[in-house]
Design a protein around this nucleic acid. Structure first.
Lengths: 117, 117
DNA sequence: TACATAGTTAACCAGATGGTTAAACATTCG
DNA sequence: CGAATGTTTAACCATCTGGTTAACTATGTA
């Protein structure tokens, strides 16, 4: 069992729930950096992108560094690792439908059941 | 590069962004099933839990089966697999701070940089 | 100085979210 | 039938979200 900071996970998953932000992360991963550049492919205003960046920043998914008037963003993937660890705990449930099968068989007998190995 | 259905990922990540729902999934994984039972540990009304379950259901994270008046929930983790795959693409960014280091070094020289292997 | 560029902040809006209580629905049981 | 149980639906509310435009701050440049 991995230790999870609830608030951090909230922010990370919420940040990932928006497709614009996922695209921003992906551009970030390919080397794009400044706000204007990151904004270009997204058909929306600069302030909108700015907000997305702030959300990603608060989730810890990117770090910002200012060089004059240019803000350079940097992907920070550690929070993704934490999220991945959380998700991993459910891996056994999608690998092998064994559990689901066992579950199903018990259910066809109907009524409660204690399961849990 | 894995193929990602944006709408599906939106729903899954959004579903995971709430701690109550993550807890529900974890109880589900341990064998709890019916609504009342899943609701008990969460200090909130039954309708609130019902809403959370519906969100998890729409994200494809659980399946519902009715036995009389009892609704039995079943963890469906495949969408989590998809989410994990998305996250996995960023693994190299948290394994080895190599990229970040290279990036940092370039930045200390200041100015643009093309990077990207 | 004056103008252009990079980006944020402010004010606003429509719609979603997460919760509530009260009522309804569906099923089981005496 | 009538009452209890399991769950959802309806109506409501406060707050958050994701977008807008307009105005502002800060920096670079002629």
């Amino acid at each position: 069992m991995v230790k999870h900071s609830s608030a951090a996970l909230n922010r990370v998953f919420a940040a990932l729930a928006d497709p614009t932000r996922r695209r921003i992360l992906s551009h970030l991963a390919r080397g794009d950096k400044c706000v204007t550049h990151l904004a270009r492919p997204h058909d929306m205003s600069l302030p909108a992108v700015s907000k997305h960046l702030r959300i990603l920043e608060r989730a810890g998914l990117l770090r910002r560094r200012r060089y004059g008037r240019v803000h350079e963003m940097q992907l920070e993937a550690k929070p993704l690792k934490q999220a991945a660890q959380w998700v991993e705990e459910y891996r056994k449930f999608w690998e092998g439908s064994l559990d689901r099968l066992a579950d199903y068989l018990q259910k066809t007998t109907r009524q409660s059941s204690k399961k849990k190995t």
